[in-house]
Amino acid sequence: MKPLLSPDYRPSETETFMNPMQQEYFRQKLLAWKAELLKESNETLNHLQEESLSEPDIADRASLETDRALELRTRDRERKLISKIDEALLRIEDGTYGYCEETGEPIGIKRLEARPIATLSIEAQERHERMERTHRDD
């Protein structure tokens, strides 16, 4: 059974890390984020269906096509984000949420608040980015 959260609950560093209250807090946070992304996606689809590309002016049509392409790229990034949110929700269910995939150490409440889909601790993420820069510079 999932614990009931008070509306003003915020996880703190003084609690046991990833206790049931924190897990439920992040589960709700992830579900709300996903719902917002899906709502925006549906609004985009409706908007694109209503718009007409039969603008008589070529400059207006080009501008409209550019806007559409940008909007579709944004939605594609959000689609990938929804996939990461779903993965985070699965990690909550299997008990691995909040722990670094590389070290197994806690990621930390502040980092999870800022990026609820994080899979690496700050230190592991920095190492990963340094390695990417090093290989990219080669």
Rank of each mutant, 00 (worst) to 15 (best):
T103H: 05
L4N: 15
A124C: 05
Q23P: 04
S6L: 10
R61N: 07
K2S: 15
E105Y: 06
H135V: 05
R130T: 08
S6W: 03
S12Q: 15
E65A: 06
L48E: 13
S121F: 03
L37R: 07
Q125E: 14
Q22D: 02
I92M: 07
K39W: 01
E129K: 05
R75N: 11
L81R: 10
E55Q: 13
D86G: 08
S63V: 09
L48S: 06
G104M: 03
E71W: 00
E129R: 05
I109A: 00
I122L: 15
A118S: 09
S52Q: 14
I82T: 10
Y9R: 13
R136T: 06
L5C: 13
E126D: 09
I92Q: 04
E36A: 15
Y25G: 04
A114P: 00
E105G: 03
A69G: 11
E102Q: 12
A32V: 14
M21W: 13
R73H: 14
R111N: 04
A124W: 04
D137T: 06
D86F: 14
A124F: 05
P7Y: 01
S41W: 00
D94P: 04
L120C: 06
E13M: 05
K39R: 12
T16Q: 07
S52R: 14
E40C: 07
M1H: 09
I109S: 00
N46E: 08
A124I: 02
E105R: 05
L37F: 00
T74Y: 05
L90N: 13
Q125G: 06
S6T: 15
D76V: 01
D67G: 13
S83E: 07
T119V: 12
M21T: 10
L48H: 11
